[in-house]
Protein backbone atom coordinates (compact mmCIF):
# COMPACT_ATOMS: atom_id res chain seq x y z
CA UNK A 1 0.00 0.00 0.00
CA UNK A 2 1.16 3.50 -0.81
CA UNK A 3 -0.21 6.73 0.54
CA UNK A 4 -1.61 9.24 -1.91
CA UNK A 5 -3.10 12.65 -1.26
CA UNK A 6 -5.33 14.09 -3.95
CA UNK A 7 -7.61 17.08 -4.03
CA UNK A 8 -10.86 15.76 -5.42
CA UNK A 9 -13.35 18.43 -6.42
CA UNK A 10 -11.79 20.78 -3.89
CA UNK A 11 -11.72 18.28 -1.02
CA UNK A 12 -8.38 16.83 0.08
CA UNK A 13 -8.37 13.05 0.32
CA UNK A 14 -5.55 10.92 1.70
CA UNK A 15 -5.71 7.17 1.27
CA UNK A 16 -3.48 4.12 1.35
CA UNK A 17 -3.96 2.32 -1.92
CA UNK A 18 -2.42 -0.46 -3.94
CA UNK A 19 0.05 1.09 -6.39
CA UNK A 20 -1.74 -0.60 -9.26
CA UNK A 21 -5.03 1.17 -8.57
CA UNK A 22 -5.95 3.54 -11.38
CA UNK A 23 -7.12 7.03 -10.65
CA UNK A 24 -10.44 6.11 -12.31
CA UNK A 25 -11.01 3.20 -9.95
CA UNK A 26 -9.88 5.33 -7.02
CA UNK A 27 -12.50 7.95 -7.88
CA UNK A 28 -15.22 5.39 -8.54
CA UNK A 29 -14.67 2.87 -5.80
CA UNK A 30 -12.99 4.79 -3.00
CA UNK A 31 -14.68 8.13 -3.48
CA UNK A 32 -18.00 6.91 -4.87
CA UNK A 33 -17.69 9.31 -7.79
CA UNK A 34 -19.17 6.96 -10.37
CA UNK A 35 -19.72 9.72 -12.90
CA UNK A 36 -16.25 8.92 -14.23
CA UNK A 37 -16.67 5.92 -16.50
CA UNK A 38 -14.13 3.48 -17.84
CA UNK A 39 -14.68 1.96 -21.25
CA UNK A 40 -11.37 0.91 -22.78
CA UNK A 41 -8.85 1.11 -19.94
CA UNK A 42 -6.06 1.67 -22.42
CA UNK A 43 -6.26 5.38 -22.95
CA UNK A 44 -7.98 5.53 -26.33
CA UNK A 45 -11.73 5.97 -25.86
CA UNK A 46 -11.76 8.99 -23.55
CA UNK A 47 -14.73 7.97 -21.40
CA UNK A 48 -12.63 8.32 -18.22
CA UNK A 49 -11.32 11.79 -19.05
CA UNK A 50 -11.18 14.06 -16.00
CA UNK A 51 -9.42 17.31 -15.20
CA UNK A 52 -6.03 16.88 -13.57
CA UNK A 53 -4.54 20.19 -12.50
CA UNK A 54 -7.06 21.90 -14.80
CA UNK A 55 -6.08 19.91 -17.86
CA UNK A 56 -7.90 16.92 -19.32
CA UNK A 57 -6.26 13.59 -18.55
CA UNK A 58 -7.05 9.91 -18.81
CA UNK A 59 -7.88 8.57 -15.38
CA UNK A 60 -7.73 4.93 -16.57
CA UNK A 61 -4.01 5.06 -17.33
CA UNK A 62 -3.08 7.42 -14.52
CA UNK A 63 -2.23 5.68 -11.27
CA UNK A 64 -3.84 7.01 -8.12
CA UNK A 65 -0.40 7.06 -6.49
CA UNK A 66 0.98 9.09 -9.41
CA UNK A 67 -1.76 11.69 -8.92
CA UNK A 68 -0.31 12.44 -5.49
CA UNK A 69 -0.46 16.17 -4.88
CA UNK A 70 -2.68 16.84 -7.87
CA UNK A 71 -6.03 18.55 -8.12
CA UNK A 72 -8.69 16.40 -9.73
CA UNK A 73 -12.00 17.65 -11.02
CA UNK A 74 -14.62 15.14 -12.07
CA UNK A 75 -18.01 15.56 -13.71
CA UNK A 76 -19.44 15.90 -10.21
CA UNK A 77 -17.22 18.91 -9.51
CA UNK A 78 -18.67 21.75 -11.56
CA UNK A 79 -21.17 23.27 -9.16
CA UNK A 80 -21.48 26.96 -9.92
CA UNK A 81 -19.27 26.78 -13.00
CA UNK A 82 -20.98 28.89 -15.65
CA UNK A 83 -18.97 27.54 -18.55
CA UNK A 84 -19.94 23.97 -17.74
CA UNK A 85 -23.54 25.04 -17.20
CA UNK A 86 -23.56 26.50 -20.71
CA UNK A 87 -21.98 23.37 -22.17
CA UNK A 88 -24.55 21.17 -20.46
CA UNK A 89 -27.43 23.27 -21.68
CA UNK A 90 -26.02 23.14 -25.22
CA UNK A 91 -25.64 19.36 -25.01
CA UNK A 92 -29.33 19.12 -24.18
CA UNK A 93 -30.42 21.47 -26.93
CA UNK A 94 -28.29 19.77 -29.57
CA UNK A 95 -29.20 16.22 -28.51
CA UNK A 96 -25.56 15.46 -27.81
CA UNK A 97 -26.39 12.70 -25.35
CA UNK A 98 -27.87 9.32 -26.04
CA UNK A 99 -26.84 6.47 -23.72
CA UNK A 100 -24.81 8.85 -21.57
CA UNK A 101 -21.84 6.57 -21.03
CA UNK A 102 -19.27 8.66 -22.91
CA UNK A 103 -20.82 11.91 -21.68
CA UNK A 104 -18.68 12.73 -18.61
CA UNK A 105 -15.47 12.32 -20.61
CA UNK A 106 -17.00 14.20 -23.50
CA UNK A 107 -17.85 17.09 -21.17
CA UNK A 108 -14.28 17.26 -19.89
CA UNK A 109 -12.95 17.50 -23.43
CA UNK A 110 -15.67 19.98 -24.40
CA UNK A 111 -14.67 22.11 -21.43
CA UNK A 112 -11.06 22.01 -22.57
CA UNK A 113 -11.99 22.99 -26.13
CA UNK A 114 -14.22 25.82 -25.01
CA UNK A 115 -11.67 27.28 -22.60
CA UNK A 116 -8.49 26.67 -24.62
CA UNK A 117 -9.66 27.16 -28.20
CA UNK A 118 -12.29 29.92 -28.24
CA UNK A 119 -12.04 30.25 -32.03
CA UNK A 120 -12.34 26.56 -32.85
CA UNK A 121 -14.37 25.80 -35.96
CA UNK A 122 -16.19 22.55 -36.66
CA UNK A 123 -13.14 20.84 -38.12
CA UNK A 124 -11.02 21.78 -35.15
CA UNK A 125 -13.73 20.68 -32.73
CA UNK A 126 -13.88 17.32 -34.49
CA UNK A 127 -10.11 16.95 -34.34
CA UNK A 128 -10.06 17.74 -30.62
CA UNK A 129 -12.85 15.21 -30.06
CA UNK A 130 -10.91 12.44 -31.82
CA UNK A 131 -9.86 11.04 -28.46
CA UNK A 132 -13.41 10.68 -27.15
CA UNK A 133 -15.37 7.87 -28.71
CA UNK A 134 -19.15 7.96 -28.77
CA UNK A 135 -21.01 5.06 -30.29
CA UNK A 136 -24.52 6.53 -30.19
CA UNK A 137 -24.68 10.09 -31.44
CA UNK A 138 -22.49 10.12 -34.54
CA UNK A 139 -20.84 13.18 -32.94
CA UNK A 140 -22.75 15.75 -34.99
CA UNK A 141 -24.88 16.78 -32.02
CA UNK A 142 -21.77 17.03 -29.86
CA UNK A 143 -19.99 19.23 -32.41
CA UNK A 144 -23.16 21.33 -32.63
CA UNK A 145 -23.26 21.68 -28.85
CA UNK A 146 -19.66 22.81 -28.57
CA UNK A 147 -20.06 25.22 -31.47
CA UNK A 148 -23.22 26.55 -29.83
CA UNK A 149 -21.39 27.02 -26.52
CA UNK A 150 -18.54 28.89 -28.19
CA UNK A 151 -21.00 31.17 -29.97
CA UNK A 152 -22.81 31.85 -26.75
CA UNK A 153 -19.62 32.66 -24.90
CA UNK A 154 -18.47 34.93 -27.74
CA UNK A 155 -21.87 36.62 -27.79
CA UNK A 156 -21.84 37.16 -24.05
CA UNK A 157 -18.34 38.61 -23.77
Amino acid sequence: MTSTTISVNGRTVTADVEPRLSLADFLREHEGLTGTHTACEHGVCGACTIMLDDRPARSCITLAVAAHGAEVRTVEGYDGDETMATIRESFKKAHAVQCGYCTPGMLATAYDIVTRLPDADRDRIRLELAGNLCRCTGYIGIVDAIEMTLAEIRGGS
Binding site: G43, R55, P56, A57, A108, T109, E128
Partner: peptide
Protein backbone atom coordinates in the same frame (compact mmCIF):
# COMPACT_ATOMS: atom_id res chain seq x y z
CA UNK B 1 0.32 12.64 -30.95
CA UNK B 2 -2.67 10.82 -29.58
CA UNK B 3 -5.15 13.24 -27.99
CA UNK B 4 -4.89 16.33 -25.83
CA UNK B 5 -5.65 14.38 -22.65
CA UNK B 6 -2.76 12.04 -23.44
CA UNK B 7 -0.44 14.87 -24.50
CA UNK B 8 -1.03 16.56 -21.16
CA UNK B 9 0.55 13.61 -19.33
Amino acid sequence: IAYRAVRNR
